[in-house]
């Protein structure tokens, strides 16, 4: 047999190169190697990062920031807030992608605050516009059902 690295590449189709399971790093804990570089940037809230990217306005900055937000492990509230920044700036695809990247947020009733803005944005690809619309409709219906159930 060859060395470990050679074996690893040879058996790449056996062992899925999926990331590790396990809990997200705790706040304040050192970041894992792969995410160390982005973490070196000055600490800023996700919404502030989005604000800055939107203010900068260049496609490259928006793309870089949105991709980071999509991949980062952030609290649901912070995710929704940053998605809303993109939505309010008319960046519907970025807003939706940030919002939907975590199951904790895309099924949340609070997501409606992002979707309310996204459905007003024109020029989105058809499936994206339809997705935003129907997600909002379903979240609204769910909220109505919950309200009705809670009523005495």
């Amino acid at each position: 047999m060859g060395d470990r690295t050679a074996v690893a590449s040879e058996v790449g189709d056996i062992l899925d190169l999926v990331p590790h399971a396990g809990p997200a790093p705790e706040r304040g804990a050192p970041a894992p190697a792969a995410s160390r570089a982005p973490a070196a940037a000055p600490a800023r809230s996700p919404a502030a990062m989005a604000e800055r990217a939107v203010a900068d306005g260049t496609a490259e900055t928006v793309r870089e920031t949105a991709t980071r937000l999509i991949r980062m492990e952030i609290a649901p509230g912070a995710r929704i807030a940053s998605a809303r920044v993109f939505a309010r700036a008319g960046r519907g695809e970025e807003a939706l992608a940030v919002l939907l990247a975590d199951p904790a947020t895309f099924g949340s009733p609070v997501a409606a605050v992002v979707l309310d803005h996204v459905v007003q944005i024109q020029g989105l690809p058809r499936p994206v516009a339809a997705l935003a619309w129907h997600l909002r409709r379903r979240l609204r219906e769910e909220a109505r059902r919950r309200k009705a159930a809670a009523a005495p």
Binding site: A8, A21, A101
Partner: peptide
């Protein structure tokens, strides 16, 4: 995330022969 994984695929040691 649905797979239950964090966003890091690089620090798993390669398998042993």
């Amino acid at each position: 995330r649905l797979m239950g994984g964090a966003d890091d695929a690089h620090d798993r040691p390669p398998p042993e022969p």
